[in-house]
Design a protein around this nucleic acid. Structure first.
Lengths: 102, 102
DNA sequence: TTGATAGGCAAGCGGTGACTTGCCTATGGT
DNA sequence: ACCATAGGCAAGTCACCGCTTGCCTATCAA
Protein backbone atom coordinates (compact mmCIF):
# COMPACT_ATOMS: atom_id res chain seq x y z
CA UNK A 1 0.00 0.00 0.00
CA UNK A 2 1.42 3.36 -1.00
CA UNK A 3 2.14 5.89 1.71
CA UNK A 4 -0.38 8.45 0.52
CA UNK A 5 -3.06 5.80 0.14
CA UNK A 6 -2.39 4.73 3.69
CA UNK A 7 -2.59 8.34 4.85
CA UNK A 8 -5.86 8.85 3.02
CA UNK A 9 -7.38 5.76 4.59
CA UNK A 10 -6.55 6.61 8.18
CA UNK A 11 -7.38 10.25 7.72
CA UNK A 12 -10.79 9.27 6.37
CA UNK A 13 -11.50 7.09 9.38
CA UNK A 14 -10.35 9.71 11.87
CA UNK A 15 -13.59 11.70 11.73
CA UNK A 16 -16.69 10.61 13.59
CA UNK A 17 -19.18 11.90 11.03
CA UNK A 18 -17.38 9.98 8.29
CA UNK A 19 -17.54 6.80 10.36
CA UNK A 20 -21.27 7.35 10.79
CA UNK A 21 -21.61 7.74 7.03
CA UNK A 22 -19.94 4.36 6.59
CA UNK A 23 -22.37 2.90 9.13
CA UNK A 24 -25.27 4.23 7.09
CA UNK A 25 -23.88 2.84 3.87
CA UNK A 26 -23.58 -0.59 5.46
CA UNK A 27 -27.27 -0.58 6.33
CA UNK A 28 -28.52 0.85 3.07
CA UNK A 29 -26.35 0.61 0.02
CA UNK A 30 -26.50 3.10 -2.84
CA UNK A 31 -27.66 6.27 -1.21
CA UNK A 32 -27.71 9.76 -2.62
CA UNK A 33 -26.18 12.75 -0.90
CA UNK A 34 -29.54 13.97 0.38
CA UNK A 35 -30.49 10.56 1.69
CA UNK A 36 -27.26 10.35 3.64
CA UNK A 37 -27.78 13.84 5.01
CA UNK A 38 -31.31 13.18 6.22
CA UNK A 39 -30.42 9.83 7.75
CA UNK A 40 -27.44 11.31 9.57
CA UNK A 41 -29.70 14.00 10.98
CA UNK A 42 -32.58 11.71 11.88
CA UNK A 43 -30.69 8.80 13.33
CA UNK A 44 -27.53 10.35 14.72
CA UNK A 45 -28.40 13.97 15.37
CA UNK A 46 -25.76 15.18 12.95
CA UNK A 47 -26.68 18.70 11.92
CA UNK A 48 -24.00 19.32 9.32
CA UNK A 49 -24.94 21.03 6.10
CA UNK A 50 -25.15 19.25 2.79
CA UNK A 51 -21.82 20.73 1.74
CA UNK A 52 -20.09 19.41 4.82
CA UNK A 53 -21.38 15.91 4.16
CA UNK A 54 -20.38 16.21 0.51
CA UNK A 55 -16.84 17.08 1.53
CA UNK A 56 -16.81 14.10 3.87
CA UNK A 57 -17.83 11.86 1.00
CA UNK A 58 -15.00 13.26 -1.11
CA UNK A 59 -12.55 12.29 1.63
CA UNK A 60 -14.05 8.82 1.89
CA UNK A 61 -13.85 8.39 -1.86
CA UNK A 62 -10.21 9.51 -1.92
CA UNK A 63 -9.53 6.76 0.62
CA UNK A 64 -11.25 4.18 -1.58
CA UNK A 65 -13.83 3.49 1.11
CA UNK A 66 -16.65 4.79 -1.06
CA UNK A 67 -17.36 4.83 -4.76
CA UNK A 68 -19.82 7.14 -6.47
CA UNK A 69 -21.67 7.07 -9.77
CA UNK A 70 -23.72 9.72 -11.50
CA UNK A 71 -27.18 8.77 -12.74
CA UNK A 72 -29.19 11.63 -14.10
CA UNK A 73 -29.31 14.30 -11.50
CA UNK A 74 -28.48 11.84 -8.73
CA UNK A 75 -25.09 10.77 -7.52
CA UNK A 76 -25.15 7.43 -5.76
CA UNK A 77 -22.62 6.48 -3.15
CA UNK A 78 -21.64 2.94 -2.30
CA UNK A 79 -19.43 1.41 0.39
CA UNK A 80 -16.19 -0.45 -0.32
CA UNK A 81 -14.78 -2.26 2.68
CA UNK A 82 -11.71 -3.46 0.82
CA UNK A 83 -9.22 -0.94 2.19
CA UNK A 84 -10.16 -1.89 5.76
CA UNK A 85 -8.58 -5.31 5.43
CA UNK A 86 -5.03 -3.99 5.61
CA UNK A 87 -5.58 -2.49 9.05
CA UNK A 88 -6.10 -5.74 10.91
CA UNK A 89 -3.25 -7.38 8.99
CA UNK A 90 -0.73 -4.67 9.68
CA UNK A 91 -0.28 -5.16 13.42
CA UNK A 92 -0.44 -8.88 14.25
CA UNK A 93 -0.30 -10.11 17.83
CA UNK A 94 3.27 -11.25 17.30
CA UNK A 95 5.62 -10.46 14.48
CA UNK A 96 6.20 -13.23 11.95
CA UNK A 97 9.46 -14.99 12.97
CA UNK A 98 9.69 -12.87 16.07
CA UNK A 99 13.25 -12.83 17.33
CA UNK A 100 12.94 -10.39 20.21
CA UNK A 101 15.43 -8.10 18.58
CA UNK A 102 16.38 -7.04 15.12
CA UNK B 1 -17.48 0.51 22.62
CA UNK B 2 -17.97 3.91 24.15
CA UNK B 3 -17.97 6.93 21.90
CA UNK B 4 -14.91 8.56 23.43
CA UNK B 5 -12.98 5.28 23.37
CA UNK B 6 -13.81 4.99 19.70
CA UNK B 7 -12.69 8.55 19.10
CA UNK B 8 -9.42 7.91 20.94
CA UNK B 9 -8.72 4.81 18.87
CA UNK B 10 -9.22 6.38 15.47
CA UNK B 11 -7.48 9.57 16.47
CA UNK B 12 -4.48 7.53 17.59
CA UNK B 13 -4.30 5.73 14.26
CA UNK B 14 -4.67 8.91 12.22
CA UNK B 15 -1.04 9.96 12.63
CA UNK B 16 1.73 8.41 10.56
CA UNK B 17 4.40 8.59 13.25
CA UNK B 18 2.10 6.80 15.69
CA UNK B 19 1.50 4.05 13.14
CA UNK B 20 5.25 3.67 12.76
CA UNK B 21 5.58 3.37 16.52
CA UNK B 22 3.09 0.51 16.44
CA UNK B 23 5.14 -1.11 13.67
CA UNK B 24 8.23 -0.92 15.87
CA UNK B 25 6.42 -2.38 18.84
CA UNK B 26 5.30 -5.33 16.74
CA UNK B 27 8.89 -6.14 15.84
CA UNK B 28 10.38 -5.61 19.26
CA UNK B 29 8.10 -5.75 22.26
CA UNK B 30 8.82 -3.85 25.46
CA UNK B 31 10.81 -0.87 24.33
CA UNK B 32 11.72 2.23 26.29
CA UNK B 33 11.07 5.73 25.06
CA UNK B 34 14.67 6.23 23.98
CA UNK B 35 14.74 2.93 22.14
CA UNK B 36 11.62 3.87 20.22
CA UNK B 37 13.07 7.27 19.40
CA UNK B 38 16.33 5.91 18.06
CA UNK B 39 14.65 3.18 16.02
CA UNK B 40 12.22 5.65 14.51
CA UNK B 41 15.13 7.84 13.51
CA UNK B 42 17.34 5.06 12.21
CA UNK B 43 14.79 3.00 10.34
CA UNK B 44 12.18 5.50 9.25
CA UNK B 45 13.96 8.82 9.17
CA UNK B 46 11.66 10.29 11.80
CA UNK B 47 13.47 13.24 13.34
CA UNK B 48 10.96 14.12 16.05
CA UNK B 49 12.21 15.00 19.48
CA UNK B 50 11.84 12.74 22.48
CA UNK B 51 8.99 14.87 23.77
CA UNK B 52 7.07 14.55 20.54
CA UNK B 53 7.40 10.76 20.64
CA UNK B 54 6.39 10.75 24.29
CA UNK B 55 3.23 12.66 23.46
CA UNK B 56 2.49 10.18 20.69
CA UNK B 57 2.83 7.34 23.17
CA UNK B 58 0.40 9.08 25.50
CA UNK B 59 -2.14 9.22 22.70
CA UNK B 60 -1.58 5.56 21.88
CA UNK B 61 -1.99 4.62 25.52
CA UNK B 62 -5.20 6.63 25.81
CA UNK B 63 -6.50 4.59 22.90
CA UNK B 64 -5.59 1.34 24.62
CA UNK B 65 -3.19 0.41 21.82
CA UNK B 66 -0.19 0.58 24.12
CA UNK B 67 0.39 -0.13 27.78
CA UNK B 68 3.31 1.18 29.79
CA UNK B 69 4.98 0.11 33.02
CA UNK B 70 7.60 1.84 35.12
CA UNK B 71 10.66 -0.14 36.15
CA UNK B 72 13.29 1.86 37.95
CA UNK B 73 14.15 4.76 35.77
CA UNK B 74 12.83 3.07 32.66
CA UNK B 75 9.30 3.09 31.32
CA UNK B 76 8.56 0.19 29.06
CA UNK B 77 5.93 0.33 26.36
CA UNK B 78 4.11 -2.66 24.99
CA UNK B 79 1.67 -3.14 22.12
CA UNK B 80 -1.96 -4.17 22.58
CA UNK B 81 -3.70 -5.06 19.35
CA UNK B 82 -7.03 -5.71 21.05
CA UNK B 83 -8.73 -2.44 20.14
CA UNK B 84 -7.97 -3.04 16.45
CA UNK B 85 -10.40 -5.94 16.27
CA UNK B 86 -13.47 -3.73 16.38
CA UNK B 87 -12.47 -1.91 13.21
CA UNK B 88 -12.77 -4.86 10.89
CA UNK B 89 -15.99 -5.97 12.55
CA UNK B 90 -17.71 -2.63 12.35
CA UNK B 91 -18.20 -2.39 8.61
CA UNK B 92 -18.98 -5.84 7.19
CA UNK B 93 -19.40 -6.42 3.48
CA UNK B 94 -23.13 -6.67 3.94
CA UNK B 95 -25.24 -5.76 6.93
CA UNK B 96 -26.52 -8.66 9.03
CA UNK B 97 -30.12 -9.39 7.89
CA UNK B 98 -29.81 -6.79 5.17
CA UNK B 99 -33.22 -5.67 4.08
CA UNK B 100 -32.31 -2.99 1.58
CA UNK B 101 -34.11 -0.39 3.63
CA UNK B 102 -34.76 0.35 7.26
C1' DT C 1 27.55 13.18 46.55
C1' DT C 2 27.96 14.34 42.14
C1' DG C 3 27.05 13.67 37.36
C1' DA C 4 24.79 11.30 33.75
C1' DT C 5 20.81 9.01 32.11
C1' DA C 6 15.66 8.44 31.46
C1' DG C 7 11.71 10.77 31.54
C1' DG C 8 7.85 14.55 32.74
C1' DC C 9 5.35 19.13 32.53
C1' DA C 10 3.63 23.18 30.41
C1' DA C 11 3.36 27.00 27.37
C1' DG C 12 3.52 28.65 22.72
C1' DC C 13 3.55 28.36 17.55
C1' DG C 14 2.14 27.03 12.96
C1' DG C 15 -0.43 24.23 9.88
C1' DT C 16 -4.19 21.51 8.75
C1' DG C 17 -8.90 20.20 8.75
C1' DA C 18 -14.01 20.66 9.43
C1' DC C 19 -17.50 23.68 8.59
C1' DT C 20 -20.19 27.55 6.82
C1' DT C 21 -21.61 30.90 3.38
C1' DG C 22 -22.70 32.45 -1.09
C1' DC C 23 -23.26 31.57 -5.60
C1' DC C 24 -23.40 28.57 -9.75
C1' DT C 25 -24.68 24.29 -12.84
C1' DA C 26 -27.58 20.54 -14.35
C1' DT C 27 -31.47 17.53 -14.51
C1' DG C 28 -36.42 16.54 -14.39
C1' DG C 29 -41.31 17.49 -13.93
C1' DT C 30 -45.50 20.13 -15.26
C1' DA D 1 -40.49 27.68 -20.64
C1' DC D 2 -40.26 27.68 -15.93
C1' DC D 3 -39.37 26.23 -11.34
C1' DA D 4 -37.88 22.99 -8.03
C1' DT D 5 -34.66 19.54 -6.97
C1' DA D 6 -29.87 17.52 -6.63
C1' DG D 7 -25.45 18.73 -6.47
C1' DG D 8 -20.74 21.49 -7.23
C1' DC D 9 -17.16 25.20 -6.40
C1' DA D 10 -14.49 28.33 -3.79
C1' DA D 11 -13.22 31.34 -0.19
C1' DG D 12 -13.06 32.39 4.61
C1' DT D 13 -13.21 31.23 9.66
C1' DC D 14 -12.15 28.76 13.77
C1' DA D 15 -10.44 25.15 16.53
C1' DC D 16 -7.52 21.43 17.21
C1' DC D 17 -3.26 18.89 16.69
C1' DG D 18 1.63 17.96 16.25
C1' DC D 19 5.79 19.79 17.56
C1' DT D 20 9.28 22.52 19.77
C1' DT D 21 11.41 24.85 23.67
C1' DG D 22 12.74 25.39 28.34
C1' DC D 23 12.94 23.74 32.62
C1' DC D 24 12.15 20.22 36.26
C1' DT D 25 12.17 15.35 38.67
C1' DA D 26 13.88 10.71 39.53
C1' DT D 27 16.98 6.83 39.28
C1' DC D 28 21.54 4.74 38.97
C1' DA D 29 26.66 4.52 38.76
C1' DA D 30 31.17 6.10 40.24
Amino acid sequence: MRVDAEAALFRALSDRTRRLILDELVERRRQTLFEICSRLAGRHGVTSTRQAVSQHLDVLEAAGLVHSRREGRYRFFELDTGPLRVIADRWPDRAPSDQEDR
